[in-house]
């Protein structure tokens, strides 16, 4: 049972991590809590569903459908940032509300076409394999591979390229970065593109797992993202990955319930335990495990 818990922790953790990194990145660079992040995942998943299944009368091959759905999420992300978030950036509350409104808009726009159908897409790879005596769908392994590849690429981008260093500079101190000749607007745009792309990729990858049972599902995904990012520390990529693993571990522990503590109905407590993990981490380390607090955020 321990092997099952650990293997599933890694597998689910990688799924969560992929979605959470974008959220964390936007916060780290732009200091914007993007509550529409999960809605972008949902959007990409539903575009994919619409394109590969006969539901809207178009049927494409998998590869172009994937590109279009991730591209759709990126375009919407750019639109939201450029025309809705950027004009009101000084008003902290207004930004939050606008991103929530955007998420609601995406949800309603999707339900105009798909009602509350699940985004049922076939797995990209078939079959399953056995790791340490635990059966795992090959699709999960694909997700694990994609996550590792994307995270490595992102780390390389942030540490090796000029643009990546500029992104980190803006995240550290916007004023000084702009004095050094970096254009914060450009850097923010690149961050938004990366974050929306990560959201889109995670959406299309999760879609075949049957996670998106209706367009309303962004709420629970968003909750999970927030918990992960807060546990790991807002703005830290390493933190998001560790946070995702912690959340996945707590979830699996609650589902398998090795000590038989809760009996029937333990699934209801799942959310509560995940939240409890977050509260404990925050009380012990107010900035999350790997987060840094800016001077004005310290107490």
């Amino acid at each position: 049972m321990l092997a099952a818990i650990l293997v599933k922790t890694v597998v689910y953790g990688s799924v969560y991590a992929l979605a959470a990194i974008g959220f964390s990145l936007i916060f780290g660079v732009a200091r914007v809590i993007n509550l529409a992040q999960a809605a972008f995942s949902v959007l990409a998943a539903y575009i994919l569903y619409g394109l590969v299944s006969p539901v809207i009368g178009v049927q494409l091959a998998l590869a172009p459908a994937l590109i279009i759905s991730v591209g759709g999420a990126i375009l919407l992300g750019i639109f939201m940032y450029k025309f809705c978030v950027d004009p009101v950036r000084e008003h902290h509350g207004a930004v939050l509300l606008i991103t929530v409104a955007f998420a609601m808009l995406i949800e309603q726009g999707l339900s105009m076409r798909f009602w509350s159908d699940p985004a049922s897409v076939d797995s990209f790879v078939q079959g399953s394999s056995t790791i340490f005596g635990v059966g795992v769908l090959n699709h999960y392994l694909l997700i694990l591979g994609v996550t590792v590849a994307l995270v490595t690429a992102l780390q390389l981008f942030l540490s090796k390229t000029r643009m990546g260093i500029a992104v980190r500079a803006v995240a550290n101190d916007t004023e000084v970065a702009s004095l050094m000749g970096i254009s914060p607007a450009k850097v923010l745009m690149i961050t938004i593109v990366i974050a929306a792309a990560l959201a889109g990729v995670s959406g299309v990858l999760i879609a075949p797992l049957g996670y998106f049972s209706s367009p309303h599902k962004w709420g629970s995904l968003l909750m999970l993202l927030m918990v992960i990012v807060v546990i790991g520390g807002l703005g830290s990529i390493k933190g998001s990955i560790i946070g995702a693993l912690i959340v996945a571990f707590v979830e699996e522990l609650c589902i398998y319930d090795p000590l038989k503590l809760f009996g029937y109905g333990a699934a209801y407590l799942l959310n509560g335990f995940v939240m409890l993990a977050m509260v404990i981490v925050l009380v012990v380390r107010p900035a999350g495990l790997f987060g840094t607090l800016f001077e004005e955020e310290k107490l």
Partner: peptide, 8 residues
């Protein structure tokens, strides 16, 4: 404080 308080 700030976003951490909100999310907590």
């Amino acid at each position: 404080r700030g976003p951490y308080l909100s999310l907590l």
